[in-house]
Amino acid sequence: MFGYILRRIALGCAVLLLAISTLYVIVQAAPGDPASAMLGPKATPAIKAAFAEKLGLDKPMPVQIVRYVGSVLSGDLGTDLRSRRPVTEVLAAHAPYTVELILASLLIAAGLGIPLGCAAAVRRNSLFDQAIGLLSVSLISVPPVIIAIYGMLLFSAALGWLPAIGAGVGEGLGSRLHHLILPAIAVGIGWVGYIARLVRASMIEVLSANYIRNARAFGLPELRIVYRYALRTAVAPTITVLGVGVGYMLGSAVFAEIVFARPGIGKLMYDAVILRNYPVTLGAVLAATALLVAATTLADILNALIDPRFKESRE
C-alpha cells in the first residue's frame, strides 16, 4: 500500500516534469524567434536578451529544457509584462478564486450526482429513473459556456437572485459564497449528470452481484444493503472520474470566470491573451497542469485507500 502511494506520487512527478518540458518544446516549435515565442510580441529587447541568457537559447535543446524545467521548479515563471511583477506572485493572487470554484463544483457534482444516481439505480426503470436519465444526458450535453451565460441572464439579469459580477472580494464570507453559487453551478452541473449516470450504472451492476443476493437471503434490511454493501463499492469509480474531471472543470472555470468576471486564473489568462502577455498565459498553463496532476494522483491514492483488496499487496 505504502509502496503503491510512493510509486503513484513518483509517477505524478514524472508526468509533471514531462509536461513542463513538452510545453517548452511545443512553444519552441512556433514560428518566429524563440524568445518572442515564449514572451510574446510585447516583450522589450532587454527582457528578451535576459531570457535568452537565462535559458541559454544558443545552447542545444536538451540544455534549454533542463534550464527551463529548473527555473520553473525553483518558482521562477518569468515576469508579468504588464505589472512587472513575478508571474508566480500574480498567479498566487488569482489561484484561490479558481481553486475555490473547482472545489465548490466538485462538491455540487458529488453531492447531487451520487444521491441522484443511487436513487435512480434503486428505483430502476421507474418514472423517476427515466427523468433522472433524461436530465443527466441534457446536463452533460449542454456546453458549460452556455450554462454560464444563460444562468447569468436568468438568475442575475432577469430574476436578480444572484450577483452577476465579481467574486465578492473584501465583502465577507457570506458575499463570497453568494458570488460563488452561479459560477459553481455553471461548472459543476454537467458533472452532476455525469456522476449520476456513473453511480447509477455501477450501482446496478453491484446490486446484481451475488453477494447482494446473499445479503438479501440473510434478511438484511434493504437500506443497509444499499448503503453498506452496494454504495461503498459502487462509488469507488466516481473518485477516479472526479480526479480526471478536474481537468474539464478547469476549462469550464475559464468560461465561468469570464462570464461572471471572477478574478481567477482563467480570467487572468483571457486578459493576458488579449494583451499578448505570454509569460502569464504560459505560467497559468503550468499552474493548472500541476493542479490537475495533483488531483488525479490524489484520486488514485484515495481509491487505493478505500479498496481493501489493495492491502493484499502489502506483503
Binding site: Y211, N214, R228, Y229, T233, P308, R309
Partner: peptide, 8 residues
C-alpha cells in the same frame, strides 16, 4: 463472489 468484497 458470495461475500461482499468491501467488508470484513
Amino acid at each position: 463472489t458470495s461475500l461482499a468484497p468491501g467488508l470484513t
